[in-house]
Design a binder for these strands. Structure first.
Lengths: 185, 185
DNA sequence: TGCCAAACGGAGAGTGTCTCCGTATAGTTC
DNA sequence: GAACTATACGGAGACACTCTCCGTTTGGCA
């Protein structure tokens, strides 16, 4: 890649990350990103053929964080409930870090054609590792996809309504206890 | 209201309901609704100043269904878990009846300025009635808003990903068991 | 220095929500 | 039934957005 192209790409990602974080995916227009980065719309679309692909580039680094969070949760010397809740909280926090991300990523969980497909695989894999690491303390039937969707739902609602952290924690606690419940009916 | 205006309004609502149900809120344009109802865009906007207000008119009748569902759940001669799950399932089913509704309504839960504010009050009231009718079988801290959001989150994910009914039921079961869990940590 | 593949950027196509305003008509009054 | 007026109609178009095309510019190399 030519030096000027690399420079422009970097500036676009930087500007877009800040704009998306502050105001959310939908509320920021591509023209705005282009103007903020000092390039024309054509240049922006040369680097990122769709708005979603730009978004994907922005959350690139997340995947790495995910596995770290699972490792931390599994390494805790604590009851299953605490370890589970630690992971769910980290997971939800990562999903709500960027406005609009939770709904978008959770919606892409079952769609191999999505631009986020690779990230979804990382997430699902992380949940799978957690399940295996917890040695069937979870209810029968609990699986990575289900957990991802449950937490994704909570995160999407939290993001959408800008809920305070303790509301989110309380909802995640309900889910954690539900996942740990021995089904009795 | 003049007779022709009433006729047009009725036709618009009828056409829009069918279009929204089939293809979802975002995928249907107002021009399309206008054309389908045989009126001009100006007429459509005369009756419904925003797209959301049209949506609100369409889901008008829902509120009545909600209280019926609570009554049915409370009247069941069955363990708390069964009654709770019955209500959560009904609630989620109503939210996913129209594509896009779950996220929209759940997002409006805490926003008094939303066009859906009245409907949200109905939903919250229904959940409150359920809580009171279940005589504190629920975990401490569970409240109408929290339950609405939890179920809304599941419904939004289900709607977004077009999940089969049994997946939704499984997720609601997790939430129901979580809500019934005696918090032990 | 000259070349050219690569990158740039802006005009504009296509689509969406919503508005303005001249025209048509329902309902009332004589 | 005719005239009148408030009400409703409908389409052109303003404005915003995503994304494309293509003539122009420029970085990197021989």
């Amino acid at each position: 890649m030519r030096a000027d192209a690399q420079r422009n790409r970097d500036r676009i990602v930087e500007v877009a990350r800040e704009l998306f974080r502050a105001r959310g995916f939908d509320a920021v227009s591509m023209d705005e990103v282009a103007k903020g980065a000092g390039v024309g719309p054509g240049t922006l679309y040369r680097h990122f053929p769709t708005k979603e692909s730009l978004y994907d580039a922005i959350i690139e680094a997340w995947s790495e964080k995910v596995n770290g969070a699972v490792d931390r949760a599994l390494a805790l010397e604590a009851p299953a409930r605490v370890r589970l809740l630690a992971w769910l909280s980290d997971y939800a926090a990562m999903l709500t870090e960027h406005k609009g991300a939770a709904a978008r990523i959770t919606g892409a969980l079952g769609d191999p054609g999505s631009p986020f497909a690779a990230k979804c695989q990382t997430y699902l894999g992380a949940n799978q590792r957690l399940i295996e690491g917890m040695d069937s303390a979870l209810r029968p039937g609990a699986n990575a996809m289900q957990i991802s969707r449950l937490v994704g739902g909570v995160a999407a609602v939290a993001d959408n309504s800008e809920l305070p952290a303790d509301s989110v924690t309380a909802m995640l606690a309900v889910i954690a206890d539900g996942l740990l419940a021995s089904v009795n009916a």
